[in-house]
Simulated assay, not measured.
Amino acid sequence: MPSAPPAAPVAVIGMHRSGTSCLAGCLEDLGLNLGEVNTAAPHNKKGNRENPRFWPIHDAVLARVGAAWDDPPGEPIAWTRDEIAALRAVLADYDALPRPWGFKDPRATLLLDGWFEALPELRLTASIRHPLAVAGSLAARNGFDRERSLQIWSAYNRAVLRWRDLTGLAVIDYDAPDYEARVRTVAAALGLDATAPMPFRAEELNHQRIADPAPPSVADLWAALQDAAR
């Protein structure tokens, strides 16, 4: 995929409960314009930094193929003409934002083929998190059992690796000890102010800290993600 200009839009992708809100919020601190987004939510004290207008579009595309955010499709989805038109109608509002602007919705991780049809210049960055931390967070928020959570986690993160192979996107581990430095490196590559204050990240909001190895069923995938984040 050809390189995009420095002012091209940015998508923050990754599995739900994997630090995508934190990454989007930190990049916003450094100058990424997110537009009108949620700034407070029951399970995100500082908000999930998402524009709710994207949710029904993403949900409709997933539902058309019998999938959902928590029942991911087994392969990439080709969007219909009407779905692309619906996305472009929301994106029209972003024309008034200073560049670069960005967005975050974990569902988009599964749906980027349509996004690239609408925005060929789109740039990506991804957040990853230990599978057991994500499973713990989904248990607390949604009541999911571990097996179900790991299956969902796997589908999203296989998509992350697919787009890593296609675009060379930067992958950041939410629990990396040098998280701030990594985010600033990504910000500089995106044309943001990597030296600006970055108060969004707050360690006290991380309620799932895992030191255990990944379960065997996802160990190879987790190892590949960690390699991508180095």
Rank of each mutant, 00 (worst) to 15 (best):
G102K: 10
A211R: 14
H43M: 08
N38M: 00
R53C: 01
E117T: 13
L112H: 04
A24T: 00
Q208W: 13
I57V: 04
R53Y: 03
D212Y: 11
L87D: 12
Q226H: 05
M1W: 13
E28G: 15
N38W: 01
R129E: 10
A228E: 04
C26G: 06
I172P: 13
R141N: 15
R184C: 14
L30N: 05
F144Q: 13
R88D: 15
A92W: 02
L190I: 01
P6F: 06
L30K: 14
G66S: 02
L110T: 13
S3M: 01
W55Q: 07
L62F: 00
D193E: 10
A41R: 02
A96C: 12
L91I: 01
N33E: 14
A4F: 12
A181G: 11
I152Y: 09
P197A: 10
L34M: 01
A40R: 11
G74C: 01
L32Y: 04
K104D: 13
L169W: 00
K45S: 07
P216D: 04
D70S: 07
F54P: 00
Y179K: 00
G66D: 10
R99K: 14
L122I: 13
N44Q: 02
L91Q: 06
Y174N: 03
P6V: 15
R141F: 06
R162D: 09
P177T: 01
H207L: 13
F144Y: 15
A228I: 02
A68Q: 07
P216T: 03
E117G: 11
R201Y: 10
A189G: 11
K45G: 11
N33C: 12
R184V: 06
A214K: 07
D165P: 04
A60M: 05
I57K: 02
V10A: 01
L190G: 09
L161M: 09
Y156N: 05
P199F: 02
I128W: 13
L166R: 10
T185W: 06
I77R: 03
Y174W: 00
E147K: 08
P215F: 01
D105K: 09
D93E: 09
